[in-house]
Computed example of a mutant assay.
Amino acid sequence: MAGGWSNDGAVQEQIDDSLADAVARARSQLPSGAGLEHCEECAAPIPEARRRALPGVRLCVSCQATHDREQAAFSGYNRRGSKDSQLR
């Protein structure tokens, strides 16, 4: 049941779009191609075990941890437009 200016299924469309955006973003960050023997950020050697466990790895553990913390701060688009999410 739609209310106001929204059509039937508008909420589900928002959920589907948000989910599709999150999946596309996650897939774009997956490593691909040949991995590196040395970190592309700090040039530290990447251990063989890490290269075998993560094909296509490009960062050492500490640089990857820093990268992950930076990515966690990304919240995406505010599709709902609620005041609380705009204040963040």
Score class of each variant (00 low, 15 high):
residue 11 V to C: 09
residue 69 R to T: 05
residue 28 S to F: 02
residue 41 E to R: 15
residue 68 D to C: 06
residue 67 H to K: 06
residue 49 A to F: 04
residue 32 S to Y: 05
residue 12 Q to A: 15
residue 5 W to G: 12
residue 66 T to V: 10
residue 33 G to S: 05
residue 49 A to Y: 03
residue 21 D to Y: 09
residue 41 E to Q: 13
residue 76 G to K: 11
residue 36 L to P: 00
residue 72 A to E: 13
residue 8 D to H: 12
residue 51 R to E: 07
residue 32 S to I: 09
residue 47 P to N: 07
residue 34 A to K: 13
residue 76 G to D: 11
residue 10 A to N: 03
residue 6 S to A: 15
residue 20 A to K: 15
residue 66 T to A: 12
residue 43 A to F: 04
residue 28 S to G: 15
residue 7 N to A: 05
residue 43 A to I: 01
residue 68 D to Y: 02
residue 60 C to L: 07
residue 76 G to H: 06
residue 43 A to M: 04
residue 54 L to T: 06
residue 76 G to Y: 07
residue 11 V to R: 07
residue 23 V to G: 03
residue 76 G to C: 09
residue 14 Q to H: 09
residue 13 E to V: 09
residue 75 S to N: 09
residue 68 D to L: 03
residue 12 Q to S: 14
residue 53 A to D: 08
residue 68 D to P: 03
residue 68 D to N: 02
residue 30 L to C: 06
residue 16 D to P: 01
residue 39 C to Y: 04
residue 39 C to N: 00
residue 25 R to C: 06
residue 12 Q to M: 14
residue 40 E to S: 11
residue 66 T to R: 09
residue 66 T to L: 10
residue 28 S to R: 12
residue 11 V to Y: 13
residue 58 R to Y: 07
residue 56 G to A: 08
residue 40 E to C: 10
residue 59 L to I: 01
residue 52 R to M: 02
residue 23 V to S: 11
residue 51 R to P: 00
residue 77 Y to L: 05
residue 31 P to W: 08
residue 53 A to E: 07
residue 59 L to R: 11
residue 63 C to E: 02
residue 31 P to E: 00
residue 55 P to R: 04
residue 53 A to S: 14
residue 15 I to M: 10
residue 22 A to I: 06
residue 72 A to T: 13
residue 9 G to M: 02
residue 59 L to A: 03
residue 45 P to Y: 00
residue 46 I to T: 01
residue 55 P to T: 02
residue 66 T to P: 00
residue 80 R to N: 14
residue 59 L to E: 01
residue 22 A to V: 12
residue 22 A to S: 15
residue 21 D to N: 01
residue 64 Q to V: 00
residue 5 W to P: 13
residue 28 S to H: 07
residue 73 A to V: 09
residue 54 L to E: 01
residue 56 G to H: 01
residue 18 S to H: 13
residue 67 H to E: 07
